[in-house]
Design a protein around this nucleic acid. Sequence first.
DNA 1: ACCTGAACACCGTTCAAGT
DNA 2: ACCTGAACACCGTTCAAGT
Lengths: 205, 205
Amino acid sequence: MTATSGLRADAARNRRLLLDAAAAEFAEHGADVSISRIAARAGIGKGTVFRHFATKERLLAAVFNDRIEDLIATGRRLLEAADPRAALLEFMVAGAGLRIGDRSLCQSAASIARTEADVRDATLRLAEVAEALTARARETRAVRADVTGHDIVLLVGAVSQATAPLGDAVPGLWRRYLHLMFAGLDPSVETPLPVPPPVPADFAP
Amino acid sequence: MTATSGLRADAARNRRLLLDAAAAEFAEHGADVSISRIAARAGIGKGTVFRHFATKERLLAAVFNDRIEDLIATGRRLLEAADPRAALLEFMVAGAGLRIGDRSLCQSAASIARTEADVRDATLRLAEVAEALTARARETRAVRADVTGHDIVLLVGAVSQATAPLGDAVPGLWRRYLHLMFAGLDPSVETPLPVPPPVPADFAP
DNA sequence: ACCTGAACACCGTTCAAGT
DNA sequence: ACCTGAACACCGTTCAAGT
């Protein structure tokens, strides 16, 4: 949820209407829908859109951000699950499922992760939750020792893009690649990786 | 290489200049460069661009197609390598490396694979080469028995998109995820996959 | 303080006029 | 046959005028 404090009543209301309309339009017609369409759906003038978000990219980032926050909440919940391995897998399923929901939005948003400050912050917090989940799985030897939370976040994104060439022709196909990648995390084939994992500093603009 | 037979001499020459200019501009500035820029770089009028390619998407598809043809050639060559496992890995490295070269182009092109006939055909021929390479690896138990050529092609695409959130901040990072995914192909952890692989019919428009 | 729609610059695409 | 640039519809963004 993006902040609405300090706003006049009508402005706060418009902002909410705008975000809801944008989320719906992005999901239905992809990231290329026009601002006019979104404004019309929200019942506000298109000039008002730019008063709340300086650029279309920022609006996209805000919608994407809400999605990340949802996943962070899911991750926190899964930290209390009994089986660390199952919890990590479920986290990845939830993340990939979320992103599959509107792939177009997430595809455009991926390249924004570093340029938009709020998306970067949310991504780093998501990576922290992922790292906590991964640490539990590492300790029980459920996954290899050299895998980090950042790895998990990037792999979830990769899963959701893997089936892009097929559109929605084979609805659940992404699960195939999620399981294939999860198998790659197994300690039984722990050959050394050629490159170290990314660190938070790599996300700096 | 896209066909130029049956064209008048000047048209064939312009088509080549256009494709070269488009490839260069897409690589340098991403898939969002304007047709005007491309036309200017090719030294032709922008009206001429649309005489050769009815739409910007089709131009993008043509450039992407040349990239796929290159990879098909690489795959054919690797079919004669001694070690099936090393050959498959090298094929995936070559494919991901190619796509990393201009990720923006490949990102836009992914969603076109099914709508543009020539891209679909090239993709299917690529999958055939990948299947031949995979079959050799399967026979020597270098990879699990339930992995197909289509799987390999989709995984290569996934690798190239995995690091999109980081841009070019960590240059060789994609190799980390390629090796992680390749580890997932190992027969030692062959848990059953939840969904069957895609078949050529799934690429039908 | 916030909203609005007309105005602007730019882009993909079309097409009448040229060779 | 093919090339060209002016013309068109549309988009993201700005801003003067309103409340």
